[in-house]
Computed example of a mutant assay.
Amino acid sequence: MSFLISAEDLAARLGRPNLRIIDGSWSLDGRDGRADFEQAHVPGAVFFDLDAVSNAASPLPHMMPSPAAFAAAAGALGVAAADQIVVYDTAGLFSAARVWWMFRTMGARDVRVLDGGLPLWRSQGRPLERGAATPRSASFQVDPVPGAVAELSDVRAAVGQGVQIVDARGAARFEGLAPEPRPGVRSGHMPGALNLPYGQLLNPDGTMKRGAALAQAFAGIGLDLDRPVITTCGSGVTAAMLTLGLAELGRPSRLYDGSWSEWGAREDTPVQTD
């Protein structure tokens, strides 16, 4: 099964009783995703706030919350683990992959990402709604997937053991040529990491590459699809784009939740620039 769904297929499913549509829009520049949602969203959608549904005790941005906290947040949005879930964002393909990964990691089995997101949906003249969502609550039964989340210790071990680490940030940040957007975070990357900016997984229309073209995006940076992979980025959002792409190819991966926001801010983690 593909983890992507076309606008045409989603439009044909609108109104089904077990379909749950989630707007997972988030942007690094602080744009108010909820305000955009209330201006225009796919009919029946609810808004998922990445910053609010996070570990409030962590100093790192939008870290995965506890299973109980996630279940409460998902249930409040009217989403159950057994539902057919479709996630999209207003950028096209960006933060929706992170929400997809969170729901999958917490035990939802039928979760897909709208290929091309809201921009492609709009361009095809498909229906939109305005206003805040008022969902009926549901019960989300969590069943966390073991090993889906990579912790700092896992990445330390990966660096030492040669496990493949793939970074979704842009080349300038990866190579230490551009400053990090968060204060106190060093520039550069984990020793031995590979760089695959998430945009290289996309077609010109904002949809994700498929098949041989998608596989070549990973192979072109020297990644061996038959070996273990940890994905990373600035704060764990676009790393999920790499995880989604690998999943489309039938390849598992682990996502480093703390990503560079954690690694680059520490004084006891090695940093490479080149």
Rank of each mutant, 00 (worst) to 15 (best):
M1F: 03
S2G: 03
L4I: 09
I5W: 02
L10M: 12
A12Q: 14
A12H: 08
L14E: 08
L14R: 09
G15R: 06
P17L: 11
R20W: 05
S25E: 04
S27R: 05
D29C: 02
G30W: 01
R34N: 03
H41Q: 09
A52D: 12
V53N: 05
L60F: 11
H62G: 06
M63F: 00
M63I: 08
A68F: 00
A71C: 00
A73F: 06
A74P: 02
L77W: 02
V79N: 03
V79P: 02
V79K: 03
A82H: 12
Q84F: 10
G92D: 06
A97P: 13
V99E: 12
W100C: 10
R104A: 13
T105S: 15
M106I: 07
G107P: 04
V113F: 07
V113A: 10
G116Y: 06
L120T: 08
R126I: 10
P127N: 13
P127A: 14
R136H: 11
S139I: 13
S139C: 04
F140T: 04
Q141N: 08
P144T: 01
L152E: 05
R156M: 10
Q164N: 03
E175M: 12
E175L: 15
P179T: 06
G184R: 07
P191S: 08
N195E: 07
P197E: 11
P197M: 12
Y198N: 11
Q200D: 15
L201T: 10
N203V: 00
P204I: 09
G206Q: 09
M208T: 01
K209V: 06
G211V: 08
G211P: 05
A213M: 06
L214N: 09
Q216F: 01
G220M: 04
I221N: 01
I221T: 07
G222V: 03
L225I: 07
L225C: 05
D226P: 00
R227S: 11
I230V: 14
G236S: 13
V237S: 09
T238D: 08
M241H: 15
G245F: 03
G245V: 09
A247D: 08
G250F: 09
P252C: 08
L255P: 00
S259D: 09
W260A: 07
E262D: 14
W263D: 01
G264M: 02
A265Y: 05
E267Q: 14
P270L: 10
V271C: 08
Q272I: 00
